[in-house]
Design a protein around this nucleic acid. Sequence first.
DNA 1: CGAACCCTTGACTTGAATCAACATAGGTGG
DNA 2: CCACCTATGTTGATTCAAGTCAAGGGTTCG
Lengths: 221, 221
Amino acid sequence: MLLRTTTSSIRPVDGHLAALAGERVFCSEFRYRRGTEVFGEGEETEYVYQIISGAVRTYKLLADGRRQINSFHLPGDMFGLENGATHRFTAEAVVETRVRITKRRSLLETMQQRESGASSFLGLVTRNLQHAENHMLLLGRKTALERVAAFLLELDERLGQPGILVLPMSRRDIADYLGLTLETVSRACSTLRDQKMLRFEGATQRQIVLLYRKGLAEYDA
Amino acid sequence: MLLRTTTSSIRPVDGHLAALAGERVFCSEFRYRRGTEVFGEGEETEYVYQIISGAVRTYKLLADGRRQINSFHLPGDMFGLENGATHRFTAEAVVETRVRITKRRSLLETMQQRESGASSFLGLVTRNLQHAENHMLLLGRKTALERVAAFLLELDERLGQPGILVLPMSRRDIADYLGLTLETVSRACSTLRDQKMLRFEGATQRQIVLLYRKGLAEYDA
DNA sequence: CGAACCCTTGACTTGAATCAACATAGGTGG
DNA sequence: CCACCTATGTTGATTCAAGTCAAGGGTTCG
């Protein structure tokens, strides 16, 4: 699945990845077209990725095609750094996405030399675990409306622009993240719109303005 | 909630916890009555625990009482060791449970002195994350029958005695782990019994003999 | 301009939840 | 040892939240 477009040959760059690993780590930039795979479940964990722009989804599949998206990765987020030798899920570009790539090996070596590096790695895994724990509560016990409200608040926090969401992912992606169907997600959004908690902006339904975050937070429970 | 019964004063013991942390770490044994809290969400992470006998559930609650059990901890398992300063969920004894307790501080210090110690801690967090990832797939996308089949296979693997399960937890606990109601869990067990995939043994419904694990694994998908 | 998506909405179906009744186990105290 | 009580578990009847099926409109892009 190497549909990568190299936009710059191997060179040192600044930013989180480089900062985390030290100046001597060399990174390169790649570009993934929407829908292309970054890595697959079971593949060797050779690289570590950081998103420059765009978005990536990581997911697991059941034999009959049912999909569960673990998480969305947005600009600034690192992903693909794992303890084991193989990836436990698939990563795909949600939209045209630029990523910074580093050899896992060189990053880990640099990490081990530094106190803060090791705790960064642990911190990364811990943050993922924490997110997973909260998501299990959502998937196991929340209603459709609560899930969608929680999703909107989560993305609102992560996308920078408070109150204004430009979602990179489709309703189907959201559904597979929240353990729902795309129709149910759509209906929940419409319900929240009717309740004046949000408003669609512009031509598409992917630009959302949050009008009453307190109300959403109450749904979030 | 300090209903602990000290069965031995502070003394060194062998076993995983001690082995992991080195001989110099002092542990003590405690006993928790069924239903008593080991630690609560938000409490300081002062101790690390390892189960000698019994079982512990860790869970999160919503405001209205809905509960999601993250995981069950069985003899040999460590729990309560976290990166942050506070626990992210509550831990309770499912049945009368004996645990070995160590001061988190002394364990972590000993860990930091050892190469293998640090990687053990990371390994622990990674295993938890991996379990959570699989559980999200279950909670988000599997049917009731698939969930119960997966649960039985998971416990079969972890309880040592292959094919023979003596469940320490109630149907309600199982339900709150699988994102179902206790009635649905009960019905699923009955269905699997009618399909000759399992058999109840003895007086209670908590002793289960797996008759056809291959069939269960197919449900697991 | 047409084709492929994406999203919404309506009608209906269904899997699991809820409500309810009952059986049995296990613990307690007389 | 038995009578009682509370926990727990099963099963049946019914309801309901979310899934499925279907139609139609809007955007995007080759």
